[in-house]
């Protein structure tokens, strides 16, 4: 069927041109712009120089934000694994007829806008929010505790955003485990805990690591929780990009920071793919 060889290309043409025109070329523009100069008047001057990158690394101000971003991303990954594994395991082993409902429920936050999920924490942790109201009512405190606008609230916002991704990834890999392996382990005299430790846990690790990568990448690229739930000292690298591009219209420097963020994520995704393979990530989105 040699005459068919043009067909896939015709089918691919619309989506390929969309991605090329709207993603590949624009990202190339970001890279090119990161070498440009910004005139004092605010105009961008085509150039090839590393001044924007030098500016980023010239003192500790920007690198500190980069390091903070990486640290917060690791913290979020850790918290998502801790909070997400057990529920995923629960769905996997649960035999109740409400299992589908439980699963649907954990997906529901996906359907609620990120901005609403983020701002909803103000209702909970604000000075007149749920927690303070409750503590005042039972008389544990006399004046409201100020809980908002720090790294903790930023983490809460991030977990609210990313936990479903983690649960889903872990659940998908747990569902993929051949249940006869567990039965075999039990037959050989393993206790429930041993069977989990020796069979289930190792076999679910691909899902855990896929979830970790996804959560890391998404955390490192987000600016909303620090912007809404964080204080001045909680900015992450995406906040920096937002401020440079939307705030001060400093396109060359904003582009350079974007390239730095992209390189960081690329290095992480590349390393991950090299050793673990990237395809597991996409499985969780395919559903059934």
């Amino acid at each position: 069927m040699k005459s068919d060889s043009w067909k896939p290309w015709a089918l691919l043409a619309p989506s390929m041109s969309a991605v090329f025109l709207l993603l590949v070329i624009p990202v190339c523009f970001v890279i090119v712009y990161s070498f440009w100069l910004r005139a004092p008047s605010g105009a961008d001057i085509p150039a090839f120089q590393f001044g924007n990158y030098a500016k980023f690394f010239e003192d500790f101000f920007y690198p500190k934000i980069l390091i903070r971003t990486i640290r917060i991303a690791f913290e979020t990954v850790f918290l998502c694994v801790v909070m997400g594994y057990i529920p995923a395991y629960f769905f996997y082993r649960s035999t109740t007829r409400y299992k589908q409902v439980f699963l649907l429920l954990i997906m529901l936050p996906f359907w609620v806008s990120f901005i609403i999920r983020t701002m909803s924490w103000i209702n909970i942790m604000g000075d007149t929010g749920l927690i303070n109201h409750f503590l005042l009512k039972i008389g544990l405190i006399e004046t409201p505790i100020s809980m908002l606008y720090n790294e903790f609230t930023v983490l809460m916002g991030l977990i609210m955003y990313l936990l479903p991704f983690m649960v889903l990834n872990i659940y998908v890999s747990l569902e993929g485990i051949d249940k006869s392996l567990l039965e075999a382990a039990r037959c050989m005299g393993c206790t429930e805990w041993q069977a989990f430790r020796e069979v289930t846990l190792p076999l679910s690790l691909p899902g855990v690591s896929a979830g970790c990568l996804l959560v890391f990448v998404l955390t490192a690229g987000t600016y909303l929780p620090p912007m809404i739930l964080g204080g001045p000292g909680n900015d992450m690298i995406a906040n920096l990009i937002f401020k440079r591009v939307i705030g001060t219209l400093d396109w060359p420097f904003g582009s350079a920071i974007s390239v730095i963020l992209l390189s960081l994520l690329f290095a992480i995704v590349w390393t991950y793919n090299r050793y673990l393979g990237i395809n597991q990530i996409f499985k969780s989105f395919q559903g059934d």
Binding site: L22, V30, G221, T222, F242, L262, L265, F285
Partner: peptide
């Protein structure tokens, strides 16, 4: 790949273009 590219960068890139 757009899944793995941060939305911030997508936002900046398209706007810049």
């Amino acid at each position: 790949s757009p899944i793995m590219i941060p939305e911030v960068v997508l936002g900046v890139a398209l706007l810049l273009f």
